[in-house]
C-alpha cells in the first residue's frame, strides 16, 4: 500500500471517527436525558453547535499559546488517531493507520500532549479558574496514568510487545482470548483508570461548572471552542478505542468498532450518571488505592 493510499484511508478514518464521536456524545446526552426523564438534545445538535461556533464573529486572543492550546489539543487527538489501529485482524491492514511497534507509548504521549497543550493555552488565558482547572486536571491525569501504565505494562509483559496492533491481534479468535479474561487483574486496573481517563463523574472536577466555571476552556470561545469540541469527540472515541484494543479484543469491522467503543464509553457514563464527583485529592487518593494496587498485582503476576 502506498503512503498516499494510507493517508487517504487515515483521513477517511479520521472523518468517520470525528462524526462517530459527535454522534456518540449526542447519543449519550440523550441517554442521560432519558434517565432524567426528558428527551434531550436533537441528535444533530453537536454539528449545529460546531457550525455556530465557527460562525462566532468575535475572536479574542490572549497570546500565541492561547491560539495554540486548542491546536495542541487537536494535534493530540489526531496524533492518537494516527497511531491507533482502528481496525485490526486480517484484511484490515489499511485501517491500521500509522501504528507501529511501541505505538502505545506514543499514544499515551499524545494523550498527555493534548492535555499539556490545553494547559498551556488555558494558562495563557489568564483566567484563575482555568489555572485552577489545569492544576486539577494534571494532578488527576498523573493519578490516572499510574495504574493505567501499570496495567498496560502488565499487558506488555503478557504479550511481550508494545505494539497495540499485536496486542489486539493476539486477542482475536473468540471472546475468551480477550485480555479481559486472560489478564483480569490488569484489565481491572486499566478499566478503573479508564473512568478517570474519560473524565466523567466522579472524576470530572477538572471541568466542574458548579465549583469553578468551567476549568481550562473558560476563556475559549468561537472557533477555538469548535476545535476543542471536535478534538474532544475524537479523543473520546480514541480513548475508547485504546481500551478496546487493550482489553476487549480490538475491532475487525467498523460495526464492531462502533459497538465496542460505544459500550466502553457507555461504561463511564453508566458510572458517571449516578455518582457525584470527587474532590481532586479524593480522586487522586482513589486512584492510588484500588487501581494502583491492582496494577501492581498485575505486574507482579506476570513478572514472576
Amino acid at each position: 500500500m502506498t503512503i498516499y493510499a494510507q493517508l487517504g484511508y487515515t483521513f477517511l478514518g479520521l472523518f468517520l471517527v470525528l462524526n462517530w464521536g459527535m454522534l456518540m456524545s449526542a447519543t449519550f446526552r440523550k441517554i442521560v436525558a432519558r434517565v432524567a426523564g426528558r428527551h434531550g438534545i436533537p441528535i444533530y445538535q453537536p454539528w449545529i453547535d460546531l457550525v455556530k461556533n465557527a460562525g462566532v464573529r468575535t475572536t479574542l486572543s490572549h497570546g500565541t499559546m492561547f491560539y495554540l492550546g486548542p491546536v495542541f489539543r487537536l494535534t493530540g487527538a489526531v496524533g492518537m488517531f494516527l497511531f491507533m489501529p482502528a481496525l485490526v485482524g486480517i484484511g484490515n491492514e489499511h485501517w491500521l493507520n500509522f501504528s507501529f511497534q511501541g505505538d502505545i507509548i506514543l499514544i499515551l504521549y499524545f494523550q498527555l500532549f493534548g492535555m499539556l497543550g490545553m494547559a498551556l493555552g488555558a494558562g495563557e488565558g489568564g483566567q484563575p479558574h482555568s489555572a485552577i482547572g489545569i492544576g486539577r486536571g494534571l494532578a488527576q491525569h498523573a493519578a490516572v496514568e499510574l495504574p493505567l501504565t501499570l496495567g498496560i505494562l502488565s499487558l506488555a509483559i503478557q504479550y511481550q510487545t508494545l505494539s497495540l496492533v499485536d496486542i489486539a491481534n493476539a486477542q482475536q479468535g473468540g471472546i475468551l482470548n480477550w485480555t479481559l479474561f486472560t489478564n483480569p487483574v490488569a484489565s481491572a486496573a486499566i478499566m478503573l483508570a479508564a473512568l478517570g481517563a474519560f473524565g466523567h463523574s466522579p472524576f470530572n472536577l477538572v471541568k466542574a461548572p458548579n465549583e469553578i466555571p468551567i476549568g481550562p476552556p473558560t476563556e475559549y470561545h468561537g472557533s477555538y471552542l469548535g476545535i476543542l469540541m471536535s478534538s474532544g469527540a475524537i479523543i473520546h472515541v480514541m480513548e475508547a478505542a485504546l481500551f478496546m484494543n487493550l482489553v476487549f479484543g480490538g475491532a475487525t469491522s467498523w460495526i464492531e468498532f462502533i459497538i465496542k467503543t460505544f459500550l466502553i464509553y457507555f461504561y463511564s457514563i453508566f458510572v458517571g450518571v449516578v455518582f457525584p464527583r470527587f474532590r481532586i485529592e479524593q480522586s487522586v487518593v482513589w486512584f492510588f488505592k484500588l487501581p494502583l494496587v491492582l496494577g501492581i498485582i498485575a505486574i507482579l503476576i506476570y513478572s514472576f
Binding site: 432524567a36 426523564g37 470530572n204 450518571v273 449516578v274
Partner: peptide, 16 residues
Amino acid sequence: QAGTYSLGIGVQWGVY
C-alpha cells in the same frame, strides 16, 4: 445538595 456535587439526575427528577 447532591447536585452541588454534580449528581444532576436527582435534581432533574426533583424539579420535575
